Amino acid sequence: MQTKIVISPQKKILIIGPTAGLGGVRTHVEQLLSVFRNDIFTVKVIQGNSTFETFIKYMKFKPDVVVHNLSIYQKELLRVVLNRYILSLLTARHILHLHGGRFHELGFLTNPIFRKMMAFHFKRYDRIFCLTEEQYATILSLTKRKNTIQKIYNYVEIPDKAELVKEKEKLNLLFLGRLTMKKGVLDAVKAVKTIRNDNLRLWIVGEGELKGEILKNSDPRIRVEGEKKGAEKKKYLQKADILILPSSWPEGLPYAML
């Protein structure tokens, strides 16, 4: 008698990334993609889409699990709330993964009505992953569901050997991240301009809304290199003497530092 082999269908996972598609959240999405086995999971990533576009792609893909990624500021929070509400019309498990930011900086959470609305929203997730103690405490105070909340820190794969390439007469500073006010990139530019040292050099690796303003800078020691990935990004890390993180944004555990 032959044994009948039943092959289970692959689980479909939909990862909804950030609006901008840049920065640490995008890096986190790439990390997730590297750990899913192709023979078990079918993974699709959506980022930079409107709620309507997300819904259309959701309907076509029909996922078993949806992973929402959220950096905590009002615009992104509104996007995630809308996505979760619209996608709740269909059957799937929903996971929320929190990234940088602090809830207490969102003033509306002090309003009892908004707190109830947010409590209702967060209770709709099957699982919530937090990056910091503050996020964990806030979500717990809103949902009162300790069994659905978990702290997970950012992670990277550590290379077996890191070869550093140093230039004897140059002091290379590296800014790695989104070119926005909250990341403090303009502060880095201003600081370098105040230092009179021709051997100092600042590499700015990233993209963002302030790129045009930084490019107007006339200091030849400050170079905007654009977005770099993989091996290209690794070269800058190998050559840098100092990695700077002048962020005014409440970072959790930034990928740039890792």
Rank of each mutant, 00 (worst) to 15 (best):
S34H: 15
E225S: 04
D219R: 00
V224A: 04
I46V: 06
R124Y: 09
K168W: 03
V165C: 09
D126Q: 14
Y73V: 07
Q47A: 11
L131S: 04
S141T: 03
P63R: 03
R223M: 08
R79M: 08
L106W: 10
D126H: 15
L245W: 05
N83Y: 04
L89P: 03
T27P: 07
R178T: 06
N197W: 05
I16M: 02
L33N: 14
R115M: 06
Y236L: 03
K182Q: 15
K116L: 11
I244R: 00
I222K: 00
I46H: 12
I56Q: 15
K216I: 04
S88M: 10
I86H: 03
M257K: 09
T54D: 08
K193W: 05
H97Q: 11
G208Q: 06
A119G: 13
E227R: 12
A162L: 12
G101R: 00
R221H: 08
G17M: 01
K44I: 07
G226K: 01
T19L: 10
I242G: 05
Q10R: 12
G21I: 07
N147F: 12
V156P: 05
I149T: 02
L98M: 05
A92T: 09
S71N: 10
G206L: 02
V189Q: 05
Q2Y: 11
T180S: 08
K12C: 05
E207V: 06
A256S: 06
E225V: 07
L90K: 13
F41W: 11
T110S: 11
G208T: 05
T54N: 12
K151A: 07
L200F: 03
H94K: 15
L243D: 00
V6D: 08
L77K: 11
Y155Q: 13
A188Q: 01
R84E: 06
S141W: 01
R37C: 07
F108G: 07
T138V: 04
F55Q: 13
V35I: 15
S141H: 03
F41R: 04
I95S: 04
M181Y: 15
P63I: 02
L179K: 00
M118I: 13
T138S: 06
M59W: 15
S88W: 08
L245E: 03
L237Q: 06
T132R: 00
Q238E: 13
E76A: 15
I242M: 02
Y58W: 01
L253E: 10
I13F: 00
K161I: 06
F61I: 01
L179P: 09
L70E: 02
I46D: 08
L70S: 07
I5G: 08
I5R: 13
L245H: 11
Q150K: 15
V192C: 01
T180C: 11
T110R: 14
G100K: 02
G107E: 12
R37L: 14
T194E: 14
S34I: 12
P9K: 13
L200I: 08
K239H: 09
G48C: 01
K12M: 04
T51S: 10
L186Y: 03
R26I: 09
L176F: 05
V80I: 10
Y155M: 10
H94I: 01
V65I: 13
N83D: 07
E169N: 14
E251I: 00
E251M: 02
G21S: 03
F122L: 10
K229W: 07
F36W: 08
K12E: 04
A92M: 04
G48F: 09
S218M: 11
P112A: 02
G177H: 00
